[in-house]
């Protein structure tokens, strides 16, 4: 695989058993993602965005076809190997933030590094740096319940970014946020995309997010309907 290619998908199909039959969620998907992309998977509900994101994130396996993520074929991975791949290369951002409520902001972000066996000093430095990226250094000791929705999503971004992954997968990251916070969050991710050259792939149907995307892949009924590169005004400003 070309060094600049981070994800390569060929003739991917995903089927789920439904009763005695099968439901085809994805079929004949072939896509390539370059390092540093800021791409969105868009399309109506049920078009297969999340399923594709799950397969790229090694949370699910293809029924057919080949998917390579960071040079590793997803198909033959054991759950241990898949976990390793996620641990070192992939960060996730969720619609509902999914922070661990009993832990502080610092501990939520630190958890990603604990899995990589960093020392306490290394963890502290990295977490504070990640908090600085998202502008929440003063909230390091707060609990998620003490934060606003926008702040929670910023913590989730810091958690995804703290281990400096090559790839961040964000499933509807702005769905629970108001317009102002949505813009802030996406701008923040765009900035990190540029500064750290991290690849971002979104599953979204939020118009506000789409304004910032470099590439929009439209899915419809489990297949790629359109794949287009965009250079938006916001992109130009940020670039």
């Amino acid at each position: 695989m070309d060094d600049s290619v981070i994800i390569k998908i060929e003739r991917l199909a995903k089927r789920f058993p439904v009763g005695t039959g099968e439901f085809t969620a994805l079929h004949n998907i072939s896509l390539t993602f370059q390092k540093g992309e800021f791409t969105g998977l868009v399309g109506p509900s049920g078009s297969g965005k999340t399923t594709l994101l799950n397969i790229i994130g090694t949370l699910d396996y293809p029924s057919e076809g080949e998917v390579e993520v960071v040079g590793r074929s997803v198909k033959g991975l054991t759950h241990k190997q898949a976990a390793y791949l996620r641990n070192y290369n992939i960060g996730f951002i969720f619609q509902t933030y999914n922070l661990l409520q009993v832990y502080t902001v610092f501990e939520n972000i630190e958890f990603a590094l604990l899995l990589q066996n960093h020392t306490a000093a290394q963890r502290k430095k990295a977490v504070m740096e990640a908090l600085d990226w998202v502008g929440l250094t003063d909230k390091f000791n707060s609990k998620p319940s003490q934060l606003s929705g926008g702040e929670c999503q910023r913590v989730a971004i810091a958690r995804a970014m703290v281990k400096r992954p090559l790839l961040v997968l964000a499933d509807e990251p702005s769905a629970n946020l108001d317009a102002k916070n949505s813009h802030n969050i996406v701008q923040m991710m765009k900035r990190l995309n540029k500064e750290l050259n991290t690849t971002f792939i979104f599953a979204t149907h939020d118009e506000k997010v789409m304004h910032y995307l470099d590439r929009i892949i439209t899915l419809r009924d489990g297949a790629v309907d359109e794949d287009r590169l965009i250079l938006t005004r916001e992109n130009q400003l940020l670039c």
Partner: peptide, 12 residues
Amino acid sequence: GIRLAMGEDKDH
């Protein structure tokens, strides 16, 4: 789910 997404494996 969060722990799995972060890269912790099921055995752990």
